[in-house]
């Protein structure tokens, strides 16, 4: 059998495939973080909590209202996005003039509260969400069986990331958004309602997190802690990609997923820290991240 570094090739390909699945989640989550940071300058520590709430919204929708997966995919991000908008309106917007640290503390507090409430309601062990019938089964790739659902995760995540990138970098709405991030006063002077834009942007970023949560629900146990266990890695991904860079977030999300998968084959013990080692190296070499621009 063909092998690389004494590891059989099928094992490597299998772990790389799983890495790609994980990377898709990293990409989707860091995308939302990057949008929020890039346009609002807020370090959204509640991102993991919104991801968790998205998964729970899907679970509750299924258990209580019999809502199917496809409806959940649309409605859960909408519901959680609206929650995000409410939080932005009531709390976050009062902090824009202050040091970014305050926004970080506020969102961290929100994350802790959301986690605590969900733990109180659903317990710590988590609930399982079934894979939708249409996506059951697997493709036999020769080296492994790839469950159809995981293939769908990769596809959906890439599609959403691509669409978001296009929207922000290539459309008129996107340039307005970016301009509002660069110089709010000037954009306001052109008669554009900047507070509304900021509010909608936060809502959209939060909805992206919730969408990732719905996608993750059938893969992992839906649990109150699912957010806090992934958000640290996602922050590392965003830092590596360059804070606020959309392309950076997506590319480094996918690449880091792959590197993590590869580490699991070569030296499994290091797989939990490899992302952070890379972050440290990147920060030493390029303090603004791989795709980051020097701040003006």
């Amino acid at each position: 059998m063909t092998s690389v570094f004494g590891v059989p090739l099928p094992a490597i390909l299998g772990q790389l495939m799983l890495g790609l699945v994980n990377g898709s989640f990293y990409a989707l989550l860091s995308l939302g973080l990057a949008v929020i940071f890039g346009l609002l300058g807020v370090v959204n520590f509640a991102h993991g909590a919104f991801y968790m709430l998205g998964a729970f919204a899907a679970y509750v929708g299924l258990e209580t209202f019999g809502m199917n997966y496809w409806c959940a995919l649309a409605l859960a991000p909408l519901a959680v996005g609206i929650l995000g908008i409410v939080i932005e309106r009531l709390l976050l917007r009062h902090l824009y003039q202050l040091d970014p640290l305050y926004g970080l503390l506020l969102t961290f507090g929100i994350a802790l509260i959301a986690e605590g409430i969900m733990r109180g309601l659903f317990g710590a062990s988590g609930k399982s969400y079934p894979v939708p019938d249409a996506l059951r089964g697997g493709f036999n790739l020769g080296f492994m069986v790839l469950p159809i659902y995981r293939a769908w995760v990769i596809f959906a995540s890439l599609a959403v990331c691509g669409a978001t990138w296009f929207l922000i970098e290539r459309t008129r709405l996107g340039s307005t958004l970016r301009a509002a991030g660069e110089n709010a006063a000037l954009v306001q002077a052109f008669g554009i309602n900047v507070p509304l834009i900021v509010m909608m942007t936060y809502g959209a970023g939060v909805a992206l997190a919730a969408l990732a949560g719905v996608l993750a629900a059938p893969v992992v146990q839906v649990s109150p802690l699912m957010g806090s266990s992934i958000v640290i890695v996602v922050f590392a991904v965003v830092v590596i990609g360059g804070m606020g860079s959309i392309l950076g977030a997506v590319v480094s999300g996918l690449v880091l997923g792959l590197i993590e998968g590869l580490t699991k084959v070569i030296y499994p013990e290091a797989s939990n820290i490899v992302v952070f080692v890379i972050m440290a190296v990147v920060l030493m070499w390029r303090p603004t991240g791989l795709f980051g621009r020097e701040s003006p």
């Binding site: 299998g14 772990q15 699945v21 893969v219 992992v220 146990q221 797989s271």
Partner: peptide, 29 residues
Amino acid sequence: TDYSSFLLQAQASHAQVLGLANAGTDFIN
């Protein structure tokens, strides 16, 4: 919660039996 990479290691061993030395939701997952 996600056992996929552990299971691929098990599969690569080409053993006949997958011994699950765990319990509760760990076993289920």
